[in-house]
Amino acid sequence: MLQQYTEQIETLGLYGFYLFLFILMGLSVQDVLKRSNVPKFGRNIVWAVLFFGCVGFVFKAVVEILWSTSHG
C-alpha cells in the first residue's frame, strides 16, 4: 500500500525538510540581528527579504503542482 504513495510521501518529506530549513534560517537571522543591535529599519528589510523569498518558494511549489496535475 505504501508503494502506491511513495512519490507523495517523498514530496511531503522534501517540503517538510524545506520548511525546517526556513525555520532554522529565520531563527539564526533573528539571533544575528539581536546580537548585532541592528536598527529597526534594517531588521524590517531583512525580514521582508526572507518573507518574499519564502513566498516565492511556496508559489513555485504551487505552480509545479498545478502544472503537473493539468498536464498529466
Rank of each mutant, 00 (worst) to 15 (best):
V49S: 03
Q4N: 10
F59T: 08
R35V: 06
S70L: 13
V32K: 11
R35N: 06
A48R: 04
S28D: 10
V49M: 09
Y15I: 07
H71T: 06
I65H: 08
V32P: 00
L19F: 15
I23N: 12
Y18H: 07
L21E: 14
F52E: 02
V63G: 00
V46Y: 00
S28T: 11
Y18T: 03
Q3S: 10
G72E: 03
L2S: 12
S68C: 01
Q30H: 07
M25R: 11
V32L: 13
L12V: 12
S70C: 09
V38A: 10
V46R: 02
G72F: 08
L33W: 01
T69G: 01
V46K: 00
L2Q: 10
A61M: 12
H71M: 11
G16T: 05
V46S: 10
T69L: 15
L12C: 14
L2A: 14
T69M: 12
K60I: 06
D31Q: 14
T69R: 15
F20D: 02
E10F: 04
F57L: 09
S70T: 09
V38F: 08
F22G: 01
G16S: 12
V49K: 02
V49E: 03
T6L: 13
A48P: 01
Y18S: 04
F17M: 07
V38W: 05
L33V: 08
F20Q: 06
V58W: 03
L33A: 06
K60L: 12
Q3E: 12
V38Q: 00
F59W: 11
K40W: 06
Y5C: 02
A61H: 08
N44W: 03
Q30T: 12
P39L: 01
L2P: 03
M25G: 10
V32M: 11
I45R: 09
Q3A: 07
Y18Q: 05
Q8D: 15
I23V: 15
G13T: 05
H71Q: 13
Q3Y: 11
F51P: 03
P39T: 01
F52G: 02
K40C: 00
G26S: 15
S68K: 10
G56R: 03
K60V: 00
F51W: 05
L50P: 06
L66D: 08
V63T: 04
R43D: 01
G72N: 12
E7M: 05
D31I: 11
F17V: 03
K34N: 10
I9E: 07
L14F: 07
V49T: 11
P39D: 15
Q30M: 06
F51T: 08
G26K: 00
F17L: 14
